[in-house]
């Protein structure tokens, strides 16, 4: 079941892979060892030109808390690129947007695991709201809507 989801996701996203890219952007993705959608998400990111190092951990809560992710807005994994934290199934173009704009934030999160998000099966029930968070006490705010 899970394997088939992953395979399907890989094939689907491979079809949309950009034809030419500069050197891949390096990312470290901390994931629950038993969660398979993170692998589907990693495949999606690879297809979008990211070089993903998958690291299993049972301590995602502490990793995301340290990264500044608000406790009630956790995604299912935490990825680090170039000093920013990307929590949950954040679409690749939003990741690129953060890396290009370099806003004064600690990172962005897509809370939960909504259907239709990258790595998840199904179709979107509504727009995906990606929140930015900081470590300076400012409340999280909507950074992008997909």
């Amino acid at each position: 079941m899970m394997k088939s989801i992953r395979t399907a996701a890989t094939l689907a996203f491979a079809a949309f892979a950009p034809a030419a890219l500069a050197a891949p952007t390096h990312a470290i993705l901390w994931k629950n060892p038993q969660c398979s959608c993170c692998e589907a998400y990693a495949a999606y990111m690879k297809a979008h030109g990211f070089d993903i190092a998958l690291k299993p951990t049972n301590d995602l809560t502490q990793i995301s808390a340290k990264a500044g992710v608000p406790a009630d807005m956790e995604g299912c994994h935490t990825m680090f690129i170039d000093g920013y934290a990307f929590d949950g199934l954040v679409p690749a173009d939003i990741v690129r947007k953060v890396l290009a704009e370099r806003p004064q934030i600690a990172g962005v999160t897509l809370p939960g695991m909504p259907t239709g998000a990258p790595g998840m099966p199904g179709t979107k029930a509504g727009p995906l709201k990606i929140y930015a968070f900081t470590k300076d006490g400012r409340p999280p705010f909507v950074y992008a809507v997909e």
């Binding site: 629950n32 049972n58 301590d59 406790a71 995604g75 939960g112």
Partner: peptide, 19 residues
């Protein structure tokens, strides 16, 4: 002990596994 023994993500995934 780290604060909290659960949150919505942990409850819906593998639970509070320590290190």
């Amino acid at each position: 002990l780290a604060a909290g023994f659960g949150n919505m993500m942990e409850d819906a995934m593998a639970g509070h596994v320590g290190g």
